[in-house]
Amino acid sequence: MARMINLRIWRGDSTDGALQDVVVEANEGEVVLDVIHRVQATQMGDLAVRWNCKAGKCGSCSMEINGKPRLACMTQVAAYGDEETITVTPLRAFPIIKDLVTDVSFNYKKAMEIPAYAHPDDLAPGDARMGQIDVERSQEFRKCIECFLCQDVCHVVRDHEENKKSFAGPRFFIRIAELDMHPLDTLKNRKKTAQEEHGLGMCNITKCCTEVCPEHISITDNAIIAMKERVVDIKYDPVRWLGSKIGKREGIV
């Protein structure tokens, strides 16, 4: 059953902008992205919004809906009250390009800073043998659809531009954890570099990232805390500390 809803959309660019109110039709079962598209096709032909799959699999339509970072394609209009105005704004942690579209290049730069997977030299294609249980830990993190909602909500960078340089963010902590837990990866010291070069220590475990993850990845518990505990173990265990100093064993493996 169609009804009219009040939608408030942030429109503008990096120089200026404001919220604009529109009234638009919404049909049964529709998601917020559907009504944004209807506005685009009928009232604002140049309204900028990113989207691709419209099925929660590509992570393109990230925005803030009534202040919460969400995928617009997975947010039902019916989740809001009949009289409630739905307010859509661009991701706050990234520079605005236009309307609901932000410059997320920060994330692609960080991706390039994480050392790639290193396959064992002596393991030929087809010869790998891994247990299902052993690949599942990394597979959880490989579910990530790179919507960057975790990056957006993370208070280390959300209102602290100055932290961006030294902080990779939750998306890339799970990338490091995924490689660290990969049964075949040969690169050592991933946890140590997470701490020393990618800003793992700046995270103080408020779990905001886990809460917004549309893939329900346990970012904090299974990746961040898991790595932090190991880092702490090794850093503050006197025997291991000594071992690392005299070079008999690797500091962090």
Partner: peptide, 24 residues
Amino acid sequence: APDRIWELETWGALFDRTKEGKIS
């Protein structure tokens, strides 16, 4: 096709496994 799949594994892909640990 088989070579192309195995190659992905050398680039870090993690497919589901059989009981023997091969790609399911």
